[in-house]
Design a protein around this nucleic acid. Structure first.
Lengths: 231, 231
DNA sequence: GGAATGCATTGACATTTGTCAATTTTTATG
DNA sequence: CATAAAAATTGACAAATGTCAATGCATTCC
């Protein structure tokens, strides 16, 4: 059975990989390293894009804030992924905000340099086309999930996805520890914090997860798959 | 005020426009005209892409069917739009099915021809990159809407979008007539048919819409904007 | 290490939405 | 144009989810 969860995230897509040596070097020359603190804003919804970000370390959420100030997390990026390039390609303002979920390290490439490379490179356009097309599957699946699944099912799916994202490179044998505030988790699942807490409580009673303070450890991913009822 | 609804659809993107004369001709040479009946399946979720479709006339829905057979409509294409090309670019099976909502006319270009042109053309990759990046905004907005808005708000938004899509080219002065089955409308809004009908009833009482059989005519789009509370 | 402070949890309740079972209306067909 | 079939509507009710208020627990900052 193919891991169905893979249809719900981008599995570590990076613009960097797949570039020929010389183009990769060109890109790296333009890179600026940025260290950012947990909670720091990277860009704001509605602002114009300044460049592309490569996430070296940490986690970054992209989200929208509605008129009542409620947040919806659209995606959580982890080490190795790139973001912020889409509105450069379409010459639009950012449709989402980006903020660090933990202390993180980014490599930043100014939009100009990125565009220059794009126009010169014979492979970059294809890499991006493939990535963006692949993304569509993920977004379509997300829309179906939000439109049709109950909070309980969505939470089960979210925990499975986060369980992947919180896997640690070197400590692959240890179970992932999901470390998100209840507010962030609620905004990721698309529900009220209180409802979320109650569902988590229920999962704890059923021994599907266990918690250490606010941290969550998944004990029974198979059961989460059952509950989420992916298609 | 910019029409906020434009952030919820692609405003008639066609691959055809923007191509230089010679490339456009190349594409047109490969085109096969297809007439299809209302309700006819164009491709099925999970199948491999055979080509690109240009919608000449009519309406086409793309949708996912979940394990219980419930449908979620992801997008409705209208005259002038192209679809089916994304999974060609990412070499994946179709993540959605496509079906005609009315009798329609399509131009079909086989995947091979499309790829050949893509590799040869200097503008097509950029056109597609721009389109796919722009799409991201639309998908992100949709996800927020489904995750956070009530059925009533989503219905108001859906009616506004459909009101645009059902505008008639030649009869621009006449109000659009939305002609969708209640099932399709419910699957577009992401709710049960019965709930949908009740909300429509409520909008009728408030003189926001009027109906002729199953057809819907929007009387007060401004009020729909208020209700939908876009951000 | 002990307050503050912010975050997480719980309870009570209101509201929204879904489901099942009729019934009515519309559409398609001979 | 009559009739069968499909689609739309309504009612009654159950289940899911959100909201508000109160309380408990964990971090962090002296």
């Amino acid at each position: 059975m193919p891991l169905k969860i893979d249809n719900y995230h981008f599995s570590r897509f990076s613009v960097l990989e797949g570039l020929p040596e010389d183009e990769s070097r060109l890109l790296k020359e333009k890179m600026i390293r940025k260290e950012i603190k947990k909670g720091q804003l990277i860009y704001r919804q509605g602002s114009f894009p300044r460049g592309v970000y490569f996430l070296r370390k940490g986690k970054v959420k992209i989200y929208q804030t509605n008129s009542e100030g409620k947040e919806q997390i659209i995606y959580i990026y982890t080490r190795g992924e790139s973001f912020g390039y889409r509105p450069i390609l379409s010459a639009e303002p950012h449709p989402v905000s980006a903020k660090a979920l933990e202390d993180s390290v980014l490599s930043f490439v100014p939009a100009q340099s990125f565009i220059r490379l794009l126009n010169r490179s014979s492979v970059l356009p294809n890499i991006l086309l493939r990535a963006l097309s692949r993304e569509f599957s993920v977004w379509a699946n997300h829309i179906s999930v939000f439109a049709q699944k109950s909070v309980r099912e969505r939470l089960a799916l979210a925990l499975l996805i986060l369980n992947e994202k919180y896997k640690r490179k070197d400590k692959g044998h240890l179970p992932p520890v999901i470390n998100l505030s209840r507010d962030d988790l609620a905004n990721y699942v698309g529900t009220a914090k209180e409802t979320l807490v109650r569902m988590l409580q229920n999962f704890k009673e059923k021994k599907i997860i266990r918690t250490e303070g606010r941290r969550i450890i998944v004990l029974d991913p198979a059961e989460l798959e059952n509950i989420s009822d992916l298609f």
